[in-house]
Amino acid sequence: MKSNSSKTITALLFIMLQSSFALSAQTGSPQQKGLWVAEQIDRADEGFVNQVSKAIMTLRNKQGQQSIRSMTIKSLEVDGDGDKSLTIFSSPRDVKGTAFLSFTHALEPDDQWLFLPALKRVKRISSNNKSGPFMGSEFAYEDISSQEVEKYTYSYLREEEVLGAKGYVIERVPVDKKSGYTKQVVWVDGTHWRLGKIEFYDRKNEKLKTLTFEDYMQYSNKKWRSRRMEMMNHQTGKSTQLTWSDIKFGQDLTVRDFDQNALKRVR
C-alpha cells in the first residue's frame, strides 16, 4: 500500500513536471521557452554512454576544388561533466596519427591535448581558440565541440515545420566572449529533438554560415544521428560536407581510453 502511494506520488510529480515544461514552452517568457527547447535537445542525447564513428570532411572552395580529411572520433558521456572525446586523424596522410584529446566542461575552459606523432610529443593546448577553423574546414572548433546547455543563453522565436514535423526555431547567444558568433538560430523538430539547421551570425551580426543536417538514422539505443552535415559559408562561397559512417554506440570504452596514455597509443 505504502509503496503504491509513493509510486502514485512519483507519477503525479512526473506529470506535473512534464506539464510545467509544456507550460513553459507555451506560456513562459521567450527566454524560458528557448531554454526549455535547448534542454529537450540535451535530454534527447542523454544516455548515449559512448560513441565511436568514422568521419570524413570534404572541403570545397569556390572553384570546386576538393580536399579530404578523415578521422575516427570516440566520445564518452561523463556524469555531471561535459563529454570526453578523442579524435584520431588518418588523412591527409601527413597528419596521420595526429590525435586530439578533449575534456569538455560546461563553464570552465575545456582541457585539450594534442599528440604529435613525429616527436611522440603530447602537448597541452589552449582551448581558447574556439572561432578558428578545424583542419582548414568551414567548421570552427566551437561548432564540433560538445554542445552543453550552459554554453549559451536562449530565446524562443517561433514554431515551424522542421524535418517534416512540427518543430521550433530558437536563437542562442554564446556565453563565451571568445566565440566567433554573436548568435545562432537553431531549427529543431519537436518530437525527436533532432537539429534541422543552424544559422551562424558573425561578430558584425551578419549571416556567416548555414549548417544543415541530413540523412538522419535512429540507432538501437533510440538515439538519432545525422549522417551528413553540410556547412555553407555565405561570405566566402566555401563549403564543407561532414559525413559519418560506422556509427557505434555502447562500445567497451572506459575513461582509460580517453587519457594521455591512450593519446600516445592510438593509431
Partner: peptide, 11 residues
C-alpha cells in the same frame, strides 16, 4: 602567447 583567429583563421 597566441593571437587566435587573428585574421581569416590565422593564428
Amino acid at each position: 602567447y597566441t593571437f587566435t583567429n587573428y585574421h581569416k583563421g590565422m593564428d
